[in-house]
């Protein structure tokens, strides 16, 4: 690695860390990490989580539109970001999504909140993280035999 690459990597890491810190704070202060809030959401008994996700999506859309308008972040014209491949029945999206939902409904935490909960000192979420990693490893092992598109 040469000298021109090293500072760039360091800058990337510092910036990612900083955005992660803000995101982690918001996840906890908004109670999106709370098992109780997730239960309220899946029972459709409160607006909090829907308002949270809805306003996050709306703000994200507005941001992307502004970035496109001014060609910021390399988003000139019709540049697609985070493009997901779509063909056939797209089975892995809804099948994998359902498996994920089963876990989210039980644990009350998705990947971001798992990290945030560990930070709050709820050390049992280290077990949840380890289980999630075993889940990813198992997916890697079974992947050739699972339906995708």
């Amino acid at each position: 690695m040469n000298d021109t690459n090293a500072p760039s990597l360091r800058r990337t890491i510092v910036r990612s860390l900083a955005v992660g810190i803000v995101f982690g704070i918001v996840l906890v202060k908004s109670e999106a990490v709370s098992w109780f809030r997730i239960q309220e959401m899946f029972r459709f008994q409160g607006f909090h989580m829907f308002g949270l996700l809805g306003s996050a999506i709306a703000t994200g859309m507005l941001s992307i539109a502004v970035m496109r308008r001014f060609g910021l972040g390399g988003l000139g014209g019709d540049v697609q970001v985070g493009k997901k491949e779509s063909r056939g029945l797209n089975r892995h999206y809804w099948m994998g999504g359902t498996v994920f939902g089963l876990g989210w409904g039980l644990l009350g935490a998705c990947p971001g909140p798992i990290y945030a909960m560990i930070g709050t000192g709820a050390s049992v979420f280290l077990v949840a993280l380890a289980s999630a990693l075993v889940g990813v490893w198992t997916y890697a092992a079974l992947r050739p035999r699972l339906p995708h598109f």
Partner: peptide
Amino acid sequence: IVLGGFLVGFGARWAGGCTSGHAIMGLVT
């Protein structure tokens, strides 16, 4: 804890994303 965590990890990667990648980033785009 254990099965819930396992399904979150397995499902997120099979689906190619979780709440942030699909519900936020994917719906935003």
